[in-house]
Every structure is written in structure tokens, then in C-alpha cells.
């Protein structure tokens, strides 16, 4: 099996992502898929740092730093500016972390999506506020340790279903992806590029320091997230049509959890609870898929 990702690099070395960073890989693939005519809009997130300090940038496309809660609004504005200038083929890419998407930036995102502004919004989800020191976000999964949900009070609420939130906006395209399946990721970005309106991509991005994993297994974990059905790969078109893009092998969730320090404290029965939650969510997804075809 060989991957078929585009050759051209729009991101260079020397960036300051941690070793094994999934967010760095995600940016590389997305830019490869979008090409040169892209403007990146970046609210506060890991990538605000990764790209490099003034007067440098590790990207070869324009990159606009903006405030934490504004990715959706800033992207909408930049797109409007481009259109006024007669530029219709540049993709405006809002690139936000899970904090800037699920929590702090959700109003701007919801506004843009409701207006169906012509932007591609990518949430690279490392499941906590990693850049500021691993604080819980509403994307942090049930059972995980973070510095604000210490082991004795680990997070006891499920991860927010951002895909359902986005589907509720009836946007033309929403999809999940991860860095362990670059072909799937690139295909989804390329598909999104051909669609007008708000497009949303939810990319699971392993974070070695935040997940407390050795950097070399980052890709393996992203793969296991899919194969355990914890993070299924699918698309939602027009808020209704669900398509699963990869059938998971159905590996038990413990195979995913056991490698990660952030789940180390979980008991067997708590892991079983996670397995039950995962099965329930998967059934939900399956029935939505069946209903929409």
C-alpha cells in the first residue's frame, strides 16, 4: 500500500512544534491538498507558536494571526475582502485548535456557518488546551487527565459532538479525518475545496506531551483511534447525508487507551464504560448513515 499525497510542500522545516506533533502533520497535508492559493487564518492555538515568531513564518502561504474567539469571523471577513477584489479562487482556511473551535470560538464559527460563508474551517483537535499547558476543553474525552482535571477528578463529561453541532447548521460539507490516514485526509480537503459555502473539517491530531505518549507512536495512536471506533472517519453533506469513509477494524478501546498516560488511572470497569459509550456512538453513526442513504 502506498500513499498518494501531493508532492508540493507549502510548509518548511524549522517550525517549533513538539517532536511528533500531529498538528504539524495536519497542516502539511491540508496545504498540500489546497495548494498555493490559500490564506490561513489562525486564532490563538498551538499553531500561533508553531508557525514561528515575527518576522518569520514556516508557511509559504499568507498567514493571518487573530484573536482566540475570532477564527470564523476573521475568515469570513477576509473572504469578503477577497471577493470585493474579484478574487474568487483563493481558499480561506480558518485553522483553529479544539479550544478555539469547541469552546472559545464557537460563536464566530456558528455565525459563519449559519451565514454559510465561503470558508474552509479546520479544527485540529488535540483534545485539550495543549499550548497553555494541557487544560481541559470541551473536546477532552471522558476519563482523560488534564492539569485542570487531575486524576482524582478526571473529566467525567463526554467529548462535545462538534460534528453534530456543525451538521445542525446544515452546512454543505463536514468531515472527520486524522493524520494516520493521509490519503483520506487529502481527499476530503480536495473535495471540500470544490464546494462553496462553509466547509468544516475535524482532524484528530495526536499530541505527545498532552496525551503523555512517546512521540514515535503518535501515528499509531491516531490509527488506533479510528480502528477502535473512538474517532470514526465520515462525512456529512448538507447536514443530512452521512458517509463512513473507513470501516474500522473494531479493535477494543483498551488498545488505544493503554498507551496514553492521560488514561493511565482508569480502572478496567471505567475502560469498559468507555467501550460502551463508543459502541453506542458508533451505532448512532451507523443508523444515521443508513437513514441518509
Amino acid at each position: 500500500m502506498r500513499f498518494q499525497i501531493p508532492e508540493h510542500e507549502l510548509m518548511g522545516p524549522g517550525h517549533v512544534a513538539c517532536p511528533g506533533c500531529g498538528a504539524a502533520q495536519a497542516m502539511r497535508y491540508v496545504l498540500k491538498a489546497l495548494g498555493e492559493k490559500t490564506i490561513v487564518v489562525l486564532p490563538a492555538c498551538c499553531w500561533s507558536i508553531i508557525a514561528g515568531p515575527f518576522p518569520y513564518s514556516s508557511l509559504q502561504v499568507p498567514l493571518y494571526h487573530t484573536a482566540f474567539e475570532t477564527a470564523g469571523a476573521a475568515a469570513s471577513g477576509i473572504k469578503a475582502g477577497l471577493e470585493i477584489q474579484g478574487d474568487t479562487d483563493t481558499t480561506v482556511l480558518a485553522w483553529a485548535g479544539d479550544g478555539g473551535t469547541f469552546d472559545i470560538g464557537i460563536q464566530a464559527l456558528s455565525g459563519a456557518a449559519e451565514r454559510n460563508d465561503d470558508i474552509l474551517y479546520v479544527c485540529y483537535d488535540n483534545e485539550a488546551y495543549m499550548n497553555t499547558g494541557i487544560q481541559r476543553s470541551s473536546a477532552t474525552p471522558w476519563g482523560a487527565w488534564t492539569t485542570t482535571t487531575p486524576v482524582r477528578h478526571f473529566k467525567n463529561r463526554p467529548k462535545k459532538d462538534i460534528m453534530m453541532v456543525m451538521a445542525a447548521h446544515k452546512i454543505p460539507y463536514a468531515a472527520t479525518a486524522t493524520v494516520a490516514f493521509p490519503d483520506d485526509l487529502v481527499a476530503k480537503v480536495q473535495k471540500a475545496k470544490t464546494i462553496h459555502g462553509t466547509r468544516f473539517l475535524h482532524i484528530l491530531s495526536p499530541c505527545p506531551p498532552g496525551w503523555k505518549i512517546p512521540s514515535e507512536i503518535a501515528i499509531r495512536l491516531a490509527r488506533l483511534a479510528i480502528e477502535t471506533k473512538i474517532f470514526p472517519l465520515y462525512e456529512i453533506e448538507n447536514g443530512e447525508k452521512y458517509t463512513i469513509t473507513r470501516q474500522p477494524d473494531g479493535v477494543p478501546v483498551i488498545e488505544y487507551l493503554k498507551f496514553q498516560g492521560r488514561f493511565k488511572h482508569l480502572t478496567k470497569s471505567q475502560m469498559d464504560d468507555i467501550q460502551d459509550m463508543v459502541e453506542k456512538e458508533w451505532e448512532n453513526l451507523l443508523s444515521k448513515t443508513e437513514r441518509s442513504h
Binding site: G12, G14, S57
Partner: peptide, 13 residues
């Protein structure tokens, strides 16, 4: 403006 003028390649990570 605070605009980037070069790449990060100088940063020997």
C-alpha cells in the same frame, strides 16, 4: 506591519 519576512529554516531544530 508585523509581517513575516523569511522562513523558519534558520531554526536548527
Amino acid at each position: 506591519l508585523a509581517v513575516s519576512l523569511g522562513s523558519m529554516r534558520w531554526n536548527k531544530t
